[in-house]
Simulated assay, not measured.
Amino acid sequence: MAETLGYDILLVDDDGEIRRLVSKLLREDGHRVTSVGSAVEMREAIARCTPDLVLLDVMLPGTDGLTLCRELRASSSLPIIMLTAKGDDVDRIVGLEMGADDYLAKPFHPRELLARIRAVLRRARPSEGGGAKTGREIRFAGWCLDTARRELTDPRGVVIDLSTGEYDLLLTFLETPHRVLSRELLLDATRNRDAEPFDRAIDVQVSRLRRKLETAGEVIKTVRGAGYLFVPDVERT
């Protein structure tokens, strides 16, 4: 049975038939959908009402989806799933570098699209219902990650914007410091899917996270042939 979440989803694709079919699928799953076919229409839709998630096609006329992804990420942490043609590795990698939280190659199975949307939205929103982790802060090298607010602050108290993928990656490292984590484990933790052979996606995510933590020094160490290791000591409060 479909899980009714009631999220607002913005679908950006210049193919009218795809917009019709995907909009129908999402509405049947309990979501509210706005579908547009261009960069101009996307900007207008977001100006009217910020969605919970954007499904963004790479191949758009005029301003392409990769440019729009970078534009969105520069001003917000809005969850973004890129729709790419034929599973093009270059588009996938560039999309992640631009800040996308996930990608899906056309043609895709409807169930996979719904699963990816649910996974990204779960990661993007704090857990409800209280519990032991509510209000927990995790500190390292003068930095602080507030897991209730999903907010990272540097030693000066400046909030550092993280995408959902970057947040999940950092949290995974903080939960297991001083331990080598394989790419497959990190992929599973941050994207909730089976890793593909030679998938560079996690390397892109690590690179982006390193840039945001660069003032902390060497935080994430590459262990050749094995994966990555989080270097600083971690304190939970």
Rank of each mutant, 00 (worst) to 15 (best):
K86R: 14
D15Q: 13
L60E: 03
L96D: 02
V204Q: 00
G157N: 13
L53A: 14
E112T: 06
V180G: 09
I81Q: 01
F198D: 14
A2G: 11
D188I: 00
V219Q: 03
V36R: 05
L185G: 04
G37C: 05
P110V: 05
V223I: 10
L10D: 05
E196S: 13
D102A: 06
G129E: 04
H31I: 03
R92I: 13
V231L: 09
G16V: 14
L169D: 06
V206G: 05
E175N: 12
E112F: 03
F173N: 01
R92D: 12
L169A: 14
G65N: 13
R193K: 08
I93T: 12
L104V: 01
D233A: 13
M59S: 15
T237Q: 11
R118A: 07
I93D: 02
S163Q: 07
G131M: 06
K221H: 10
E184D: 14
V180H: 10
E218W: 00
R122M: 03
V158P: 03
M1R: 06
R43F: 12
I81P: 00
E137M: 12
G87A: 06
A74H: 09
A105I: 00
L66S: 13
D89F: 07
R210C: 06
E218A: 10
L169G: 02
L53W: 04
L162W: 09
A141Y: 01
A100P: 08
P107Y: 04
G6P: 05
A45W: 04
K86D: 12
H178T: 01
L121W: 07
A105G: 08
L25W: 14
D233G: 07
S163I: 05
F140C: 03
L174I: 05
V22K: 02
I220C: 06
F173K: 02
K106M: 05
F108P: 02
R32M: 08
T164Y: 01
V223E: 10
P107W: 04
K86F: 09
E151M: 15
A189K: 15
D14V: 14
L170M: 12
A2C: 11
F173C: 08
D88T: 11
P61W: 00
D161C: 12
R27N: 10
D15E: 15
W143S: 00
E3F: 12
G135Q: 07
L10A: 09
D233L: 07
R118E: 05
A74F: 03
K212M: 08
E166G: 09
P197I: 07
L170N: 02
G62D: 11
R139W: 10
E137C: 09
